[in-house]
Amino acid sequence: MTTYRKIILAALILAFGVVALGAYVRLSDAGLGCPDWPGCYGKLTPHNAADAINAELAVRPDGPVSHAKAWKEMVHRYFAGTLGLLVLTIAMLAWRGRHETRGGLGLPLLLLGLIVFQAMLGMWTVTQLLKPLIVSSHLLGGMTTLALLLWLWLRERGQLGHTYYANSDHLRNGALLGLILVAMQIGLGGWVSTNYAALACPDFPLCHGAWMPPMDFEQGFTLHRNLGETATGELLPLSALTAIHWTHRVMALVVTLYLGWLVLRLVRSPGYAGMGLVIGGLLVLQVSLGISNVLFGLPLAVAVAHNAGAALLLSSLVVLNYRVRRR
């Protein structure tokens, strides 16, 4: 099963790249760089679709379509398509060697179903014109794919070295809650990003000069609506965007306090100090990147790093949960 494990590892690394690349596409406003799916104006590459792209640029020079944006969008699709093929290969190898794998077929088949659904979400992202619910679901699907691939790789790799892990029953519930809180915060972060609310609060730590600025939670957290619009088709007010951003900040405080407590418990637990320091370091990095996004006006590199940091923090909690359950 050596080849099987190598393919899982390759898919895991690629999944992280796809998550980061997807963030780059979204944050550089290239999500509609090719307004059809799966090709670009029906062509395999933007180079082949140059005439169609030029025609669109002649009509709307400042529109969502350009040669650069088309390449960004299509490169993301190429990488995502390759990941899909790797996951299909993993499922096929798991089926052929089902008597040799460590945990059976359930997880590989779940990954295959998830990757198919991810492809559908990618299509709907374009055809539904970046509807926030769909784009946020696509982000969460990518993070879930990454987490499941990591769990599968850890499982098939077997015992993590020869490190002795003391009884970890007292850490199980805390580790699981940490994972859930980070996943919730990633969901909120996705909602901020897909609604373009990252700078709805332009100051820090206050928001519009107040701890509790005017906010419209009902409009901000109405799921079924178009980008930038209320459920009735009106322009989404600033108070709704403020509510989205403010909620993400409050949840960030909750996650920081909880993970800080969890890190202290890990550092004091035999065999888990290193894991605690890794989680603590990623937490500090992620909080710093989030604050920098506000203070420096959402630089593209910092915003993409914030998304990648979320993926790394999630991954560290996945590893922790695996260890406390499979010591």
Rank of each mutant, 00 (worst) to 15 (best):
residue 21 L to R: 10
residue 21 L to C: 06
residue 23 A to S: 13
residue 23 A to M: 05
residue 25 V to D: 07
residue 27 L to S: 01
residue 29 D to K: 12
residue 29 D to Y: 06
residue 29 D to M: 09
residue 36 D to K: 05
residue 36 D to M: 03
residue 40 C to Y: 03
residue 41 Y to P: 04
residue 41 Y to C: 02
residue 43 K to F: 06
residue 44 L to T: 11
residue 44 L to Y: 05
residue 45 T to D: 03
residue 48 N to Y: 04
residue 48 N to I: 00
residue 49 A to F: 02
residue 49 A to Q: 00
residue 51 D to M: 08
residue 51 D to A: 14
residue 52 A to L: 07
residue 54 N to P: 00
residue 54 N to A: 06
residue 58 A to E: 15
residue 59 V to G: 00
residue 61 P to M: 08
residue 61 P to W: 09
residue 61 P to D: 06
residue 62 D to C: 02
residue 63 G to L: 08
residue 65 V to C: 03
residue 65 V to N: 05
residue 66 S to Y: 04
residue 70 A to C: 11
residue 72 K to A: 02
residue 73 E to K: 14
residue 73 E to P: 07
residue 73 E to G: 07
residue 74 M to L: 11
residue 75 V to H: 04
residue 75 V to A: 09
residue 76 H to C: 09
residue 77 R to H: 11
residue 79 F to K: 12
residue 81 G to K: 00
residue 82 T to F: 13
residue 82 T to Y: 08
residue 83 L to Y: 02
residue 85 L to M: 15
residue 86 L to W: 02
residue 86 L to N: 06
residue 87 V to L: 10
residue 87 V to F: 09
residue 88 L to W: 03
residue 89 T to D: 02
residue 91 A to P: 09
residue 93 L to D: 06
residue 94 A to V: 08
residue 94 A to E: 13
residue 96 R to S: 03
residue 97 G to K: 04
residue 97 G to H: 11
residue 97 G to P: 04
residue 99 H to L: 14
residue 101 T to M: 05
residue 102 R to F: 03
residue 104 G to N: 01
residue 106 G to C: 08
residue 107 L to H: 03
residue 108 P to V: 05
residue 108 P to D: 06
residue 109 L to D: 12
residue 110 L to H: 00
residue 112 L to K: 01
residue 112 L to V: 06
residue 113 G to T: 13
residue 116 V to I: 15
residue 118 Q to P: 12
residue 118 Q to T: 13
residue 118 Q to A: 11
residue 121 L to Q: 14
residue 121 L to W: 03
residue 121 L to N: 13
residue 121 L to T: 13
residue 123 M to E: 10
residue 125 T to R: 13
residue 126 V to E: 00
residue 126 V to T: 00
residue 127 T to N: 04
residue 127 T to H: 05
residue 128 Q to V: 01
residue 129 L to V: 15
residue 133 L to H: 13
residue 134 I to G: 07
residue 136 S to W: 13
residue 136 S to L: 10
residue 138 H to A: 06
residue 140 L to I: 08
residue 140 L to A: 12
residue 141 G to E: 02
residue 142 G to Y: 11
residue 142 G to W: 09
residue 142 G to S: 13
residue 143 M to D: 11
residue 144 T to N: 06
residue 144 T to W: 07
residue 145 T to W: 12
residue 146 L to M: 14
residue 146 L to W: 07
residue 147 A to T: 04
residue 147 A to C: 04
residue 147 A to S: 10
residue 148 L to V: 03
residue 149 L to W: 05
